[in-house]
Design a protein around this nucleic acid. Structure first.
Lengths: 135, 135
DNA sequence: TTTAATGATACTATATTGGTATCATTAAGT
DNA sequence: ACTTAATGATACCAATATAGTATCATTAAA
């Protein structure tokens, strides 16, 4: 069970970088260099964030990216779901079709509880809360 | 993030079946039929459980499997780790090499907390606790 | 000796993860 | 206008995990 894959990790770190940066616009090349990530991969990640509306993108020379949202309002949960879809601790099992229990199933109940907990914890972490952390 | 894959799901249901069954020894064919699973796949799963010492296996005609452990002492956590290895919410990231934060990192702290919670919940569910559930 | 079970192993198909590569587009600076 | 340096959009690739299938050897009951 991985919650934070490389995708999401790079994503978090680049957003923190942008939130902390004095400069308004930062390009992928700069972030890839500073944060030690493969540039083409980072670019792909940033494009996803752009499509999701979390970043503004500027093409052309001196272009780059910029946060489109207050870093206090960018939650870890949303970053994870942006790349992996909604968090589902138990995916396709324990549906009526597959599972004879369903209604009363303890496993399902526990899993739902775990899922709620995980989601609530991840909703708690913002990019802003990570900015000061590095040093 | 999947905790319970098909592997583990089949595994749980077959163990519950064995725990509930009046018969001492049950063969893979019977379980596959009753629980609607592909028999060769189930066999592979049961072999894993056997190697882990959770099942006794009997070869030859009228052979099959039998719980080697009290169903009150078979925990969901152990079944999951038997097939996926230890639960790691955050796998390779946030180690000194990769992550500039490490020491103080909020993400890491939260993830560790989530991991502990998940593990403690999964330790709580036994095969025995699932037996009565079906009906 | 036949039959019906597991043991061991090798193979296949699909999805996900972690990328690379290419070409088009855009805009700043000259 | 031209060059350069950025993103946009795609298509591709390799490794790993998941979900199986297939085969043959072994074993033991009838």
């Amino acid at each position: 069970m991985k919650l934070i894959t490389r995708n999401v990790d790079y994503c978090i770190r680049s957003l923190v970088y942008m939130a902390a940066c004095k400069k308004d616009i930062v390009c992928a090349e700069e972030m890839a260099r500073h944060l030690n990530m493969p540039r083409p991969f980072l670019r792909k990640i940033l494009q996803v964030l752009h499509k999701k509306g979390m970043l503004k993108a500027y093409k052309g020379k001196n272009g780059g990216f910029k946060l489109a949202v207050n870093p206090k309002k960018i939650f870890l949960l949303d970053l994870i779901t942006a790349f992996h879809g909604p968090i589902k601790v138990v995916e396709h099992l324990f549906k009526k079709k597959c599972c004879p229990f369903t209604e009363c199933c303890i496993v399902k109940k526990k899993m739902d509880k775990i899922e709620k907990y995980v989601i609530s914890e991840l909703k708690d972490i913002t990019i802003y809360s990570l900015v000061g952390c590095k040093k």
